[in-house]
């Protein structure tokens, strides 16, 4: 069923298509990042695809790859009951992909979260701010090169804080 979707994407968006694979019902197309909106629009608008249900948007960090941030979008058709995963990779130097909020209003907060955690920018997003962390937070914590032990807090710690909690006292 969804292989049909892969074939349709391949046919309709020839210049966007890079690769596809389908294993155990996981049907994936890999597309060029600048053409991402085009592909998603096709999946959304085409009457045979009719993927009106936006399931998820997330990012995967592959530090060893040159285009290390892989944006992953999951779509589902409520009328035809098929699913597809759309992936697009961007490099750290220019981590910009088109926003899909013009098609799916619900993608708004997903894109803000992806921006918050990975620093991937979504062009055309109406209000791309951090969503979970505070504005002054430095860096993007789910990037693999964010130091594991780095701690940030919006207020200073108590100066007199001992590193260990005080020893447990005997009852008076």
């Amino acid at each position: 069923m969804s292989k049909k979707a892969i074939r349709a994407v391949k046919k309709a968006c020839k210049d966007a298509f890079i690769d596809s694979h389908a294993e155990h019902g996981d049907h994936t197309v890999i597309v060029k990042p600048e053409k991402l909106l085009e592909v998603v629009r096709f999946l959304h608008d085409d009457p045979d695809m009719d993927m009106k249900h936006f399931c998820d948007l997330t990012v995967v960090d592959w530090p060893e790859r040159e285009e290390r941030f892989e944006v992953v979008i999951h779509l589902h058709s409520l009328t035809r009951h098929h699913r597809i995963r759309v992936k697009a990779s961007v490099a750290e130097s220019d981590p910009v992909v088109p926003s899909i909020t013009p098609l799916y209003k619900g993608a708004n907060w997903f894109e803000r979260e992806a921006f918050d955690m990975y620093g991937v920018k979504f062009e055309g997003h109406p209000d791309l701010r951090r969503i979970l962390l505070w504005e002054e937070f430095e860096g993007h914590p789910l990037r693999k090169d964010y130091p594991k032990k780095r701690r940030q807090c919006p207020i200073p710690f108590r100066e007199d804080h001992p590193d260990q909690p005080p020893p447990f006292r005997e009852r008076p």
Binding site: L133, P141, Y146, K148, R150, R151, Q152, I155, R158, P165
Partner: peptide, 18 residues
């Protein structure tokens, strides 16, 4: 033990009993 969590509230307020 990660970026999001305060590592013990005694970092910001004094605690009487843990």
């Amino acid at each position: 033990d990660n970026y999001a969590t305060l590592q013990g509230i005694d970092k910001i307020i004094p605690v009487d009993v843990y």
